[in-house]
C-alpha cells in the first residue's frame, strides 16, 4: 500500500485532470454536433437523464432499476466474500486441501464470468437467482486468490513472534496470519466488487426486465442512444461510489494502515 503518484493532492494533478476531462467532453460535443454522427450530444443526454428521472422505463423508476442491480451485486458480493475468504484461508493454510482443490480451481478460474450465463440460466431459470449466481462467480475469484496470497505470504517474522508467544496453530492462523492478510484481502474485495458490477450489467443485458444492464438493452432496442449513454454514466458513477465506500470501510476496519502510510 505504497503511495502512488496519483495520491498526491497537488495542484498540478488536479488541474491536469480537470483539463483532460474537459477536453474529452469538448471532443464529445464537437463530434456529436457534426451532421452524420451516431452519438447524442451532451445536452441531449442531460435532457434524457431528466426524462428518465421524471417517467419510469418499462414500469420501473430509475431508482428502481439502480436498486435492482445493486441488490444483485451486493447479495452476490457478500456471499462470495464469505465463501471466498474461507476458501482462500483453506488454500493458504492447509496444504493437502490446496493440493487437491487447487487444480480444479485453476481450470475454472480463467473462464470469464459471463460465459456461464447460458448454463446458469438453464440451471437456475431467468429469475433473481441466476443473476446473483453470475455475480457470485465473478466476485469469488478475486477474493479467493487474494486471501490465498495473503495467508501464504504472511510475514515469517510475525509468525515466529506468534510462535514464541505460545500460539497454537489455530491461534497462529486467526490471530497472526489472517490479520496480516487483511490489506490483501480487502484489495481482493475491491477488485471483486468492480468485477461483480461488470458481471451484473452483462447478465442483465441478456435476461432481465429491470436493472441498469436492462436500461442499456432497452436503449439499444429503441435506438435510444441517449438512454444508452445515460446508463453508461450511471454505471460508472455507481462503480465509483462502491469503491469509495469500500475505501472508507477499510479506513474504519484497519486504522493502523493509515498510520503506516504516513
Amino acid at each position: 500500500m505504497k503511495k502512488t503518484r496519483f495520491d498526491r493532492g497537488n495542484l498540478k494533478y488536479y488541474a491536469l485532470s480537470v483539463l483532460s476531462v474537459s477536453l474529452l467532453l469538448l471532443a464529445w460535443f464537437v463530434y456529436s454536433s457534426s451532421a452524420n454522427a451516431i452519438l447524442s450530444t451532451p445536452m441531449e443526454v442531460i435532457e434524457r437523464f431528466a426524462g428518465v428521472i421524471r417517467s419510469p422505463i418499462a414500469g420501473t423508476s430509475l431508482a428502481g432499476h439502480i436498486w435492482a442491480s445493486l441488490k444483485r451485486v451486493l447479495t452476490g458480493f457478500i456471499v462470495a466474500s464469505a465463501i471466498g475468504i474461507v476458501l482462500g484461508i483453506c488454500f493458504g493454510w492447509f496444504e493437502t486441501f490446496r493440493d487437491i482443490v487447487w487444480p480444479i480451481f485453476s481450470i475454472i478460474r480463467p473462464i470469464p464470468p459471463i460465459a456461464w450465463i447460458p448454463l446458469v440460466i438453464l440451471w437456475a431459470g431467468i429469475g433473481e437467482t441466476a443473476k446473483i449466481i453470475i455475480v457470485f462467480i465473478a466476485c469469488v475469484m478475486p477474493v479467493v486468490l487474494n486471501t490465498f496470497a495473503g495467508i501464504e505470504s504472511a510475514d515469517p517474522l510475525l509468525l515466529d513472534a506468534g510462535k514464541v508467544l505460545g500460539a497454537n496453530s489455530r491461534q497462529m492462523l486467526l490471530s497472526v496470519a489472517l490479520p496480516d492478510s487483511i490489506p490483501t484481502i480487502i484489495a481482493g474485495m475491491k477488485n471483486a466488487l468492480s468485477t461483480g458490477w461488470m458481471a451484473v450489467v452483462g447478465a442483465e443485458m441478456v435476461v432481465a426486465r429491470e436493472g441498469v444492464g436492462f436500461l442499456i438493452i432497452s436503449g439499444m432496442d429503441n435506438l435510444d442512444i441517449s438512454l444508452v449513454l445515460v446508463s453508461i454514466v450511471i454505471i460508472a458513477c455507481i462503480s465509483a461510489c462502491l469503491t469509495f465506500i469500500l475505501n472508507r470501510m477499510e479506513g474504519v476496519l484497519c486504522p493502523w494502515l493509515k498510520l503506516e502510510n504516513k
Binding site: L157, D160, A161, C254
Partner: peptide
C-alpha cells in the same frame, strides 16, 4: 522463553 526481535516483530494491527 521470552524473545526480543532484532526488527521488533510487533503486530501492526
Amino acid at each position: 522463553i521470552g524473545f526480543v526481535f532484532q526488527r521488533y516483530a510487533l503486530f501492526p494491527w
